[in-house]
Design a protein around this nucleic acid. Structure first.
Lengths: 340, 340
DNA sequence: ATTTTTTATTCAAGCGCTTGCTCCAAGTAA
DNA sequence: TTACTTGGAGCAAGCGCTTGAATAAAAAAT
């Protein structure tokens, strides 16, 4: 046998027509059971595999999903948010389970990628990760929607979302972990992270934080909680914490908008000889795998990344198949460890 | 315009034949510059994109690479070795830069995936990550090679490797970091990690460790260094370290086969109130992003993952294009931090 | 015995593109 | 004028598959 076997080869071998081979391999009831089995046996023997390109072309679809990870051009090249990476695993698995392949790509906004993946028939739909943190995503997403591209986005739910959004309940997470700290008797709170409107996700966490403080009377009515800005990296957390300590601000509890920030904060605390949690409580957000191995182990909020990945994939496939797909908010759980 | 535009649509619009359109868009010199430009303008206006499936089918290739991450069925589902993840970034980028797409998939050995990705024309070649740690990979790889599948593997170089291998110089890494510890005056060494022949990579690290100790006279001739077995997870590192401490073994330096193990060890040390590095030095391997935020920051060996990803892709593409591809060993650097 | 229904298979079109070959007109040489 | 290049474009095959429609054979109904 020279080259790969085609369906004609196996048709010839089986003494049937090529179309019967195609039907047999797809388990069409139009082919009798015996012929089906016979054809399958021959196919296996000749190590025949359906050519995806031909099949896709004919069917005008690709049974492939594209995962686009937003890449922050300003941050360190090699740093990918571990939270997204942990979702990568479940997305990959869910995609495979649904019989799709997964294309992955890092994209920057600057690129004019638009709906290329779907336009070229490389993918039937697109999953967007990391597109929640920037102002200028809206235009692009609306363009996608206009083009009728199938896509789901991981991010925050806002009043009007272009496309379908799956996200975790950041408000509730911020609210719950703050209440936990209040229960532990903390009085002086600071929030570190992008508590500005650049990131709706961080903003929701901050709002939960703020509302918890208000409800429990730590904040007087009309007062807004203190926050220090930081981007989601250890380095930024470290620097901001140093600045915070230098400022002389009175504080016995820090809620960080992400574990990465919290890890930077912990490391600044250690360097300045503060004791966590005795002098000050630190909590993070995300429960990245290493959160339990920091020193002290980090109290944090866990987003169910496995569920999230599955729902993202499920939702996208629903859209592709023309079924109804709605926004989903996934609950987040507080994970108690020793930093609080 | 109903549906996506095809090359016929733009041919019609431009008043030329469809084949001229195809040539123009591929910058064929058979088409005059002016017509080329005119056609390109019309294509852009109609938002025309070449259908990948049709193009691939005709050309009998897919300009896609598949990345197969080995998934250890025995370990925690959501845990992916962060080291591989950091390579994912550079692989993705290098793939894109070379004009290929990247399919990603987690595979278990049990599955009979073989060369499916290439057989089905979904990919032109395969990158194998995480296939270095198990005994039974050889058969599969040899099968791949027999089938003439294009693949590169990340792993250790052994006498006879099926296919092409790109790896980092684990022997040298183990050797150098051990010498560093000896320079610091340490006397009682233990290696924690898979110092058995399950993992050629860990074995090479151990050999470097062992040889350094011998050369510097810490080990008497013929003696072999002490090692405790562990798999590459924090939990395993933690447990093994606990057992080591319980054993009463005299030790002032631990070389871990991976950062994950070292992080588990650090956490066990902290719990048992040992001071690192005063009582005992701990070093890891990999320099995962969080290694510099452990407490104390971890001395480790950095594999150049960016370079590694690029070389993997480059090597695979060379194979695909029929050029000569040879095994590559990438140097590893000791990163000094405070745990040693 | 004849017509109708059911079952199993084949025919043939065509998905959208790439590319070897053919064709034509204008330019150059004889 | 005739013959020969040559640059630019068109023709048409065909990549390997899926699938609606046609056909043939067998079974059931009349």
């Amino acid at each position: 046998m020279k080259g790969k076997a085609t369906s004609f080869d196996i048709a010839h071998e089986a003494g049937v027509s090529q179309s019967t081979v195609s039907r047999a391999l797809r388990d069409s009831p139009l082919v009798s059971i015996e012929t089906r089995e016979r054809i399958k046996a021959i196919a296996k023997e000749l190590n025949y595999k359906v050519d995806k390109n031909a099949s896709n072309l004919r069917q005008q679809q690709s049974s492939t999903l594209a995962l686009l990870l937003f890449e922050d051009p300003t941050s360190d090249d090699s740093m990918i948010n571990p939270f997204f990476l942990s979702m990568l695993g479940s997305i990959t698995r869910a995609t495979a389970k649904a019989g799709y392949d997964l294309l992955i790509s890092f994209q920057q906004f600057s690129n004019d990628w638009h709906a290329d993946f779907e336009d070229t028939h490389k993918a039937d739909g697109i999953i967007l990760l990391g597109y929640g943190d920037f102002l200028d995503y809206r235009d692009k997403l609306e363009k996608l929607e206009q083009q009728n591209t199938h896509f789901v986005r991981w991010g925050a739910l806002e009043e009007h979302n272009p496309g379908v959004v799956v996200g975790s309940n950041n408000y509730q997470g911020g609210y719950n972990i703050t209440n936990h700290l209040i229960d532990r008797g903390r009085k002086h709170f600071v929030f570190i992270g992008g508590a500005d409107n650049h990131s709706p996700e961080f903003l929701a966490r901050f709002n939960g934080f703020n509302d918890a403080l208000s409800e429990r009377g730590i904040l007087k009515p009309g007062q807004t909680a203190k926050h220090w800005d930081a981007i989601s990296t250890e380095t930024s957390g470290y620097n901001v914490c140093k600045a915070l300590l230098d400022s002389g601000e009175k504080v016995d509890a820090i809620v960080c908008a992400s574990d990465l920030i919290a890890i930077g904060v912990l490391s600044a605390m250690k360097e300045s000889s503060y004791n966590v949690p005795d002098d000050i409580a630190i909590v993070g957000y995300d429960d990245i795998p290493l959160a339990r191995f920091t020193s002290p182990p980090l109290t944090t909020v866990k987003q169910n990344t496995i569920l999230a990945g599955e729902i993202l994939v499920e939702t996208l496939i629903a859209k592709i198949e023309g079924r109804h797909a709605k926004n989903v908010l996934i609950d987040a759980d507080v994970i108690l460890r020793e930093s609080s």
